[in-house]
Simulated scan of single mutants.
Amino acid sequence: MDNTGRVAAADAATLPPAGAGTDAAIAEVEEQFTRLFNQVGTSMRERASRIHPDLQPVGYKLLSTIVRSGPIHAGALAAMLYTDKSVISRQVKILEDMGFVERKADPADRRASFLAATPEAIERVNEVRAADQANLYRSLRRWGEDDVRRLAELLERLNEVAR
């Protein structure tokens, strides 16, 4: 048994027993997450290509995070995205070569630098984000306020459990 199996077995031992109906519902949630993650992957590829035809999804994720956060240290970016700093370094080099990211000296520590999005990157990312946001709003407005609030509450609970 691998470590994943041991962890799952240990977790299962501490949980209250679930009925077949609960397990079936959980399996359906898992299936819906799989579908959602596949759609998100496709969406990330499309977003990246709208920024630049050679931009990979991971590069888009970094770039959009830098745009959203403002200038940021590479280590903080790695922590924010739960990824290795070497991945950040490789992707930042690509983004610099594309003209989307620049390094700025940290005035508090001249040995360190901030990663900052260029004005062109900010404009492109904001255009892509605005179009995607418009689609999300258009879709969720069909649900009604109570359903949208319930979705937000459930997602918040899920995010709290995932920590």
Results as ranks from 00 to 15, higher is better:
130 A>D: 05
75 G>K: 07
69 S>F: 10
143 W>I: 14
5 G>A: 09
132 D>H: 05
150 R>Y: 12
100 F>S: 01
37 F>G: 08
35 R>C: 10
45 R>E: 11
69 S>R: 14
58 V>F: 15
125 V>E: 00
128 V>G: 00
35 R>I: 09
59 G>L: 03
141 R>K: 13
136 L>A: 09
9 A>Q: 08
58 V>H: 15
117 A>L: 08
54 D>M: 13
161 V>Y: 06
8 A>E: 05
50 R>A: 04
8 A>M: 10
72 I>E: 06
42 T>C: 02
16 P>S: 12
36 L>Y: 13
103 R>Q: 09
4 T>V: 11
158 L>E: 09
68 R>D: 07
134 A>L: 01
30 E>R: 14
42 T>L: 05
132 D>Y: 04
158 L>H: 08
22 T>L: 02
42 T>A: 04
69 S>I: 09
140 L>C: 11
5 G>V: 04
81 L>E: 14
24 A>L: 07
123 E>H: 10
102 E>L: 10
63 L>E: 02
100 F>D: 00
130 A>Y: 00
72 I>Q: 09
54 D>C: 11
96 E>V: 06
138 R>T: 11
38 N>D: 07
135 N>M: 09
40 V>N: 06
57 P>A: 12
107 P>K: 02
138 R>V: 03
68 R>P: 02
161 V>W: 05
19 G>A: 00
97 D>A: 11
56 Q>A: 15
88 I>R: 05
125 V>A: 00
37 F>N: 12
93 K>N: 06
32 Q>V: 14
117 A>V: 04
143 W>V: 13
60 Y>K: 01
67 V>D: 00
98 M>E: 06
104 K>A: 09
54 D>W: 13
118 T>W: 08
40 V>A: 11
29 V>E: 13
110 R>N: 03
25 A>V: 04
74 A>S: 12
15 L>M: 12
110 R>F: 03
19 G>S: 02
38 N>R: 07
161 V>L: 11
15 L>P: 08
